[in-house]
Design a protein around this nucleic acid. Sequence first.
DNA 1: CTTATAAATGTTATATTATTACATAGCGTT
DNA 2: AACGCTATGTAATAATATAACATTTATAAG
Lengths: 132, 132
Amino acid sequence: MQKEHNLSRNQKIIFDLIDKSGEPMKAYSILFNVQKKGIKAPLQVYRALDKLVEIGKIHKIESRNAFIACQNSSCQISKATAFSICESCENVSEISNSKLSKYLSNFSDDSGMKYSKYNLEFFGLCKKCKSK
Amino acid sequence: MQKEHNLSRNQKIIFDLIDKSGEPMKAYSILFNVQKKGIKAPLQVYRALDKLVEIGKIHKIESRNAFIACQNSSCQISKATAFSICESCENVSEISNSKLSKYLSNFSDDSGMKYSKYNLEFFGLCKKCKSK
DNA sequence: CTTATAAATGTTATATTATTACATAGCGTT
DNA sequence: AACGCTATGTAATAATATAACATTTATAAG
């Protein structure tokens, strides 16, 4: 079992927003959306985002500078993330494929590096966009 | 064989700089370094970077907003990139592992997406930093 | 060679993303 | 209460990236 994290006020507001949106959100778009709730400054958003990423409730889509709620029920794999990104409609979803995550988590080469984390982003066309 | 790309003046200046540095360089650090050669504006740098990424001469390290010269002799795999990143010394190197690239290039799942590109970033401690 | 076209360049301004620095408040432990 | 830690508030600014527009250079077709 995972440790249950008690989110602080700002963290909760921001997590709920991202989670409900169901898609990647950018920091300043988040800021805009939570200003009515009293979160006024970028730093307040970035601090909450940092924490939420740290505890695995959200992930950053690096190629898009955006944040998406973790879609793996228990957020067990926040150090091993994989996403599929449609280059046409920009739809993003988290890939939960145990073979893939096993393969990558166990990956090692002769560089002498000890890998403790990875992030993988696949790009392509989603079903809908392919058929257009 | 690959098409030989004739780099333009700015592209050449910027590629040479990145290539010689041997490590990831940030856009504004590049800008600073090429100002004496007449490249004065960020956009000039970003345009060259865009082109160099497009033709596979350099890659963007997304998690670092930095650019590194392709280390695979012929840049054949610019649509299939993998890097190892030391979280202590920030050393980055491109992973050339045919099993890995085959595995990922052939990856598919039941999402219906057609994957045409991927970028993978591994994080950990390099040999040197591990032993400190 | 010249005309057309695409690619690259130059320049200014501005948009977007993210952090520094410093002060204050809340919360759990002893 | 006193301490340590986490979170918050606020202002300023740094770092990363793009828009818009004018001009020049390279490439290819006639």
